[in-house]
Simulated scan of single mutants.
Amino acid sequence: MTRTQPLDLTTDLVTLTRALCDLPSVSGQETALADAVEVALRGYPHLEVLRDGDALVARTHAGRSSRVVVAGHLDTVPVSDNLPTRLVGEGEHAELWGRGTVDMKAGVAVQLALAAELVEPSRDVTWVFYDHEEVEAALNGLGRIARNHPDWLAADFAVLCEPTAAGLEGGCNGTLRVEVRLTGVAAHSARAWTGRNAVHAAGEVLRRLEAYVPADVEVDGLVYREGLNAVLISGGTATNVIPDSCVVTVNYRFAPDKSVEEALAHVRTVLDGFEVVVTDAAAGARPGLDAPLAQDFAAAVLSATGGRPSAKLGWTDVARFSSLGTPAVNFGPGDPTLAHKADERCPVHQISASHAALRAWLTA
Rank of each mutant, 00 (worst) to 15 (best):
M1V: 00
T2A: 09
L13H: 07
V14D: 10
V14H: 05
R18M: 12
A19Q: 13
L20Y: 02
P24D: 09
G28C: 07
E30M: 04
A32I: 08
L33I: 08
V39W: 03
E48T: 15
E48V: 10
E48A: 13
A55Q: 13
H61A: 15
A62D: 04
S65D: 15
S65G: 08
V77W: 09
D81F: 10
P84F: 14
P84L: 14
A94S: 09
L96P: 06
G98E: 01
G100Y: 11
D103Y: 05
V108W: 01
V108T: 12
A113H: 15
A113R: 15
A115Y: 13
A115E: 10
E117N: 02
P121S: 08
P121K: 10
P121F: 07
V125T: 00
D131P: 03
L139A: 12
A154R: 11
F157D: 03
L160M: 09
T164R: 12
L168Q: 12
G171R: 10
G171P: 11
V185L: 14
S189C: 09
N197K: 15
E218P: 04
L228Q: 06
A230Y: 02
V231R: 05
C246R: 12
T249Q: 15
Y252P: 06
F254A: 10
P256A: 07
E261L: 09
E262P: 03
L264F: 00
H266K: 11
V270M: 03
V278E: 15
A281P: 00
A281E: 13
A281L: 07
G288C: 06
L289I: 02
P292Y: 06
G306N: 12
P309H: 13
P309E: 10
G314P: 02
S323Q: 13
G325L: 06
P327E: 09
F331H: 12
A339P: 00
I351Q: 11
A357I: 00
A360C: 07
